[in-house]
């Protein structure tokens, strides 16, 4: 399995990673190698095998519906890159 430069660009876009043109080729080569490694999986016989999402055979625990968190906006926004009037700022979003 090898990835074309176009596929690399598409994946980088989907993952929101800027991709300088000179990096497309090396990434294409490296990712193709990784996918080749991963390709060994196709040889495994897994016809009747149930997928394993998790190592633990447990079920989800439920939390009581109670408000336990207090307002810590000031502390949380002290580490934010851009805030105004309590809102996080981003470049204008056009819907």
């Amino acid at each position: 399995m090898s990835l074309s430069p176009e596929q690399i660009k598409q994946v980088a876009h989907l993952a929101r990673l800027s991709l300088p043109p000179e990096k497309v080729e090396p990434y294409a080569r490296q990712l193709s190698n990784i996918l080749e490694l991963v390709g060994q999986l196709s040889n495994a016989a897994t016809d009747d095998v149930a997928p394993m999402a998790h190592p633990l055979d447990m079920v989800q625990r439920l939390r009581p519906d109670a408000v336990t968190e207090e307002d810590r906006r000031d502390a949380f926004q002290a580490i934010a890159p851009a805030v105004e009037n309590g809102l996080y700022l981003v470049p204008k979003v056009i819907e």
């Binding site: 105004e84 009037n85 309590g86 809102l87 996080y88 700022l89 981003v90 470049p91 204008k92 979003v93």
Partner: peptide, 15 residues
């Protein structure tokens, strides 16, 4: 929620 009013060239985010 995204709040588009009240900011020039920016959108405010309330989570």
């Amino acid at each position: 929620k995204s709040l588009h009013e009240g900011f020039v060239g920016q959108t405010g985010i309330d989570l």
